[in-house]
Design a protein around this nucleic acid. Structure first.
Length: 581
DNA sequence: GCCGTTTTCGGCCCGACTGTTTTCAGTCG
């Protein structure tokens, strides 16, 4: 059993113990154990094999036995027994912001509420306010939270959808009857939130391919099976965003066409709808007829062997899928003036990485090694600052220790450098955590908001601008604080923030964590026009998350960014010139 | 359930914010 599932189960046991009215400390022991495990960087299997689980602080005899049972057998009898005494739907209520174990117990025990639907109804009937500790505002907040969850229903984070799609596409592509295949629609356009996975394949034997697709091992159910289109649902997996309480597994559509049709349908299914309408209008004005089956003039089929030729026939340069949103790409393609979008191979390094000095689970050295493996020539470490106590923010002595460690490591490297950075909190009044002397010791300073999200747009904009105007600040991180499918961003005037960044020569981060993708791609073009540089930052808290850099490149492309707009494309010497102190 | 002793039982937990209270409970990052 994987680590994430172990963590989920331990936390669920904690909640169930609280619901049962067991001692809070006992429940807390399970929460704590979950935290300890989440911060491990050795596999649980190793610890178990070496009988070292009990050495972890907070894991004693009982928890050690339970975790061992979980990891080795994939289940835990104690957990299953507990779980069978509660309605299955009860736990989805915990996904509501502001709803924790205590309030869950109150609505379950007193009102007998066991699902989101029942809770929503009870809110409408004003039944929550009768509960001790509940009032009008809490009830309103819960109702709002339920509505938000419903809005997020049926949506999936890009990272998750992309991984699922890749697995299926690789199987389809290997099938002997498949000639060409591709992911299409929003996933191909690299939209940040995905509703369905659509895959297109060309073949001379549609039914054979559909038989194969609908009988794949890892699918939950088959909804539709035809020779041109089939739809299956994948099993629900537990690796998704926090706002997905109501979700089932994601749907996958497979479309099959003849090989001659492939480029036309590839273009058509890639969309977007707005882009397709504009393209079709253009085709019509040029005397073409354009539909899913192909491109026609006077009823005659115009042969194109790929998408490039289709665009060419319409007097356009090839438009990369990411740009097909009808936001000016067609006009520029007509003048062959589309931007030369940034490529994954342009990336030389990344910034905004956490380590064990704050809330990361890997050491500075491990992170650097992982970055080198990706071919990076530099890495900007930026742990949390002291104000972020929840994230173990660094006190001044920790900073000194980290800097000494980085200096020692840097001496050992040839063509690689670790830059000393900090993710410093922007305090509610817009000032930056730490005094000037401490801030001056870093190569770069990332400023970000992690507290007091409930300001007005005007206050929050002012707060961010004041931070940008601080002479020590190099870049602004996750400008809206949004968590996709989890939390709306705080209100802030992004255009004004971009103006301030331009005026103060401050870089804006494109946070490449798929939960964030913040700066939103819709603002990247504006930042570029204003001359603001973008940094693709992973916000990695472990080794694996460094790969988010490449997802960030996808979003940067969607935001029209070129290599010269992104500071991660600078080589080591250039970064040294700009940032090293 | 874990830990650590003044060693077999009592305390355990960071701090801000919100909403409910009228001094604090619950949630969250």
């Amino acid at each position: 059993m994987d680590k994430k599932s172990v963590i989920d189960i331990l936390e669920e046991i904690g909640v169930m113990l609280e619901l049962k009215g067991e001692s809070e400390s006992r429940a807390r022991a399970y929460y704590w154990a979950a935290r300890v495990i989440s911060s491990l960087d050795v596999p649980l299997e190793t610890l178990i094999a070496e009988n070292k689980l009990k050495e972890l602080k907070g894991i004693g005899k009982a928890l050690s036995a339970k975790i061992t049972e979980l990891v080795t057998t994939g289940r835990l009898q104690y957990h299953e027994n507990l779980k069978s005494s509660f309605p299955e739907t009860l736990f989805e209520l915990l996904k509501i912001p502001g709803m924790g174990p205590k309030r869950l117990k109150a609505v379950y025990d007193t009102l007998g509420i066991k699902s989101l639907g029942e809770l929503e109804y009870a809110c409408h009937e004003n039944r929550l306010i009768s509960l001790k500790g509940f009032g009008i505002k809490t009830q309103e907040k819960i109702l709002l939270g339920i509505q938000q969850l419903k809005r997020y229903q049926g949506q999936y984070l890009y990272d998750f959808a992309q991984k699922e799609a890749e697995k299926i596409l690789s199987l389809i592509a290997q099938h002997s009857k498949v000639i060409q295949s591709s992911v299409v629609s929003s996933l191909r356009r690299k939209v940040e939130v995905i509703k369905e996975i659509d895959i297109l394949a060309s073949t001379n034997d549609k039914m054979k391919v559909m038989d194969f697709f609908t009988s794949l091992k890892d699918i939950e159910s088959v909804t539709v099976k035809g020779d041109a289109k089939s739809n299956v649902t994948l099993p629900l997996r537990y690796t998704q965003g926090q706002g997905q309480a109501l979700n089932t597994g994601i749907n996958v559509n497979l479309y099959t066409v003849s090989d001659a049709q492939f480029p036309y349908v590839l273009r058509y299914l890639t969309g977007s709808e707005e882009h397709n309408i504009a393209i079709r209008d253009r085709a019509a004005k040029m005397g073409f007829e354009m539909n899913e089956d192909g491109l026609f003039k006077d009823g005659k089929f115009i042969e194109c062997k790929d998408e490039n030729q289709i665009f060419h026939k319409l007097g356009l340069a090839f438009i990369p899928p990411e740009l097909r949103e009808n936001t000016g790409e067609i006009e520029l393609a007509e003048r062959d003036a589309l931007p030369k979008l940034i490529e994954e191979s342009d990336i030389k390094g990344t910034f905004h990485v956490h380590t064990t000095y704050s809330d990361g689970i890997s050491t500075v050295a491990e992170m650097a090694e992982a970055a080198m493996k990706l071919g990076f020539t530099y890495l900007g470490i930026s742990d949390h600052s002291q104000y972020a106590a929840y994230a173990n923010g660094m006190k001044p002595d920790a900073i000194q220790k980290q800097h000494r460690e980085i200096d020692t490591l840097n001496c050992k490297f040839d063509n690689f450098k670790i830059f000393k950075g900090i993710e410093a909190d922007i305090l509610p009044d817009g000032s930056i955590d730490y005094d000037d002397a401490i801030l001056a010791a870093f190569d770069f300073v990332i400023a970000s908001v992690h507290s007091k999200f409930n300001m007005t747009e005007e206050e929050m904009t002012k707060r961010n601008i004041k931070a940008i105007e601080n002479e020590h600040v190099t870049m602004l991180a996750h400008p809206t604080g949004r968590l996709l499918l989890g939390r709306e961003g705080y209100p802030v005037n992004v255009a004004k923030v971009i103006d301030a960044a331009a005026a103060n020569d401050v870089v804006i981060e494109l946070n490449a964590n798929p939960h964030r993708f913040d700066l939103d791609w819709r603002y990247c073009k504006l930042a570029k026009e204003k001359g603001v540089k973008i940094s693709i930052n992973t916000d990695a808290h472990n080794l694996d998350e460094l790969r988010y850099t490449y997802m960030g490149v996808g979003i940067a492309r969607k935001g029209w960014l070129e290599a010269k707009d992104v500071i991660n494309t600078m080589n080591l010497r250039e970064v040294c010139d700009v940032y090293s102190r």
